[in-house]
């Protein structure tokens, strides 16, 4: 059985949802995993380290419909500093919106990176409603899919998986409104203040 390097490409990696997903992954995974945040200063170190693993799992959020610039910059460094033995690259991407399919373009970008740089592309897990799903009872759905993701990578039977809250868009609208009102409230900001139409005024 191989070993998996988990790389978190969220710009808020230490406090990210991606980190929570990565923790679940490590708990469910039967083979050895090692977790790293991608920071501005550790690219070269991570490139070197990647040689020790059979697989890399990139865990990251969808940012402006694509991969976050934190991850983009790391991939560019990896392109310049490739490991001798290239691990298989798998992806766990989460987005704020309900539809997991909104992550598709980011997945295509990761595939392009692999294609251009000679990495085999492995498994994918796309999570919709990823900002909030772990705080709901639907967490159980995420746990199940992450377990499947982990065994697919461990057995090298790579596959595509997805999950989101099993609710209607209208319900999601209500639930997300409540989520964000509560977020603002913790900062002493009202719904009306959050709804300002002004930008930098």
């Amino acid at each position: 059985m191989g070993s998996i390097m988990i790389l978190n490409g969220s710009p808020r990696a230490p406090k990210s949802n991606s980190k929570r997903y990565a923790t679940i992954f490590s708990e469910k995974c039967k083979c050895k995993t090692e977790y790293f945040n991608i920071s501005k200063t550790n690219h070269i170190q991570l490139c070197g380290k990647s040689e020790e693993f059979s697989d890399i799992l990139f865990v990251f959020p969808l940012y402006a419909d694509g991969i976050p610039v934190t991850l983009l910059n790391f991939l560019k460094t990896l392109e310049e500093n490739p490991p001798k033995n290239k691990p298989v690259v798998s992806v766990l991407v989460n987005c704020g919106f309900l539809e997991y399919s909104q992550n598709n373009t980011a997945v295509s970008m990761m595939k392009l990176f692999c294609h251009q740089n000679g990495y085999r592309f492995g498994s994918v897990l796309k999570i919709g409603s990823g900002e909030a799903i772990l705080t709901t009872p639907f967490k159980i759905l995420v746990n199940r899919k992450i377990k499947k993701l982990a065994s697919s990578i461990a057995c090298a039977k790579y596959c595509i998986l997805q999950t989101t809250m099993p609710i209607s868009s209208k319900m999601f609208l209500k639930a997300s409104t409540a989520y964000w009102i509560n977020y603002g409230k913790k900062n002493g900001i009202t719904k009306e203040q959050m709804e300002t139409m002004n930008i930098e005024e």
């Binding site: 964000w180 977020y183 959050m194 002004n198």
Partner: peptide, 8 residues
């Protein structure tokens, strides 16, 4: 920009 200083 959404929850502390909305719009900034």
């Amino acid at each position: 920009c959404w929850t502390k200083t909305p719009g900034k």
